[in-house]
Simulated scan of single mutants.
Amino acid sequence: MMTNAQKIKMAIAYKGKSEAWLAKEIGTTPQAFNQRMKTDKFSTSELENIAKALGAVYSAAFEFPDGTKI
Rank of each mutant, 00 (worst) to 15 (best):
D66P: 09
A51H: 08
A23R: 01
A11Q: 05
A20E: 04
F64N: 01
T3I: 02
A13D: 10
W21N: 00
A56Q: 15
W21K: 10
E25H: 06
A13N: 07
P65R: 14
K52Y: 11
N34G: 09
K52S: 13
V57M: 06
F64R: 09
F62D: 03
I70V: 15
E25Y: 07
K52E: 14
N4S: 11
M2L: 11
S18M: 09
P65A: 14
S59L: 12
N49G: 02
A32E: 05
K7R: 14
V57D: 09
S45M: 12
G16C: 11
Q31S: 15
G16H: 07
G67S: 13
F33T: 06
E48D: 08
Y58N: 07
K24R: 13
I70G: 12
P65T: 06
K17Y: 03
M10Q: 01
A32N: 08
Q35Y: 07
S18H: 12
F33A: 01
L22T: 03
K7Y: 11
L22C: 06
K41C: 03
K24D: 00
G55Y: 12
K38V: 02
A61E: 15
T29A: 10
E63F: 09
T44E: 13
I26R: 15
A56M: 15
I12N: 00
Q35I: 02
A61Y: 15
G67H: 13
T39D: 04
A5S: 09
I26E: 05
S59I: 10
G67E: 13
K7M: 13
M1R: 11
E48Y: 00
F62N: 08
Y58K: 03
T3Y: 04
G55K: 08
S18W: 07
K15Q: 14
A11R: 04
E25I: 04
L22G: 06
I12Y: 00
N49M: 05
E25M: 13
M1L: 13
A23D: 04
I70C: 15
K15R: 15
Y14Q: 14
S59E: 07
K41N: 02
E63W: 04
F42P: 07
P65D: 05
S18Q: 13
K17H: 04
E25P: 05
A32C: 05
A32G: 00
W21M: 09
F62Q: 06
M1G: 11
S18R: 14
F64T: 08
S43W: 00
E19W: 04
A56Y: 15
I8C: 11
A5Q: 03
I12Q: 04
I26H: 08
T44Y: 13
Q35N: 10
M1K: 10
Q31F: 09
A5R: 08
T28M: 02
E48F: 01
K17C: 05
A13Q: 06
G27V: 07
G67V: 09
Y14T: 01
A13W: 05
N34M: 04
L54I: 08
F64A: 13
F64V: 02
K69W: 00
A23F: 06
T68V: 15
Y14F: 08
G67I: 11
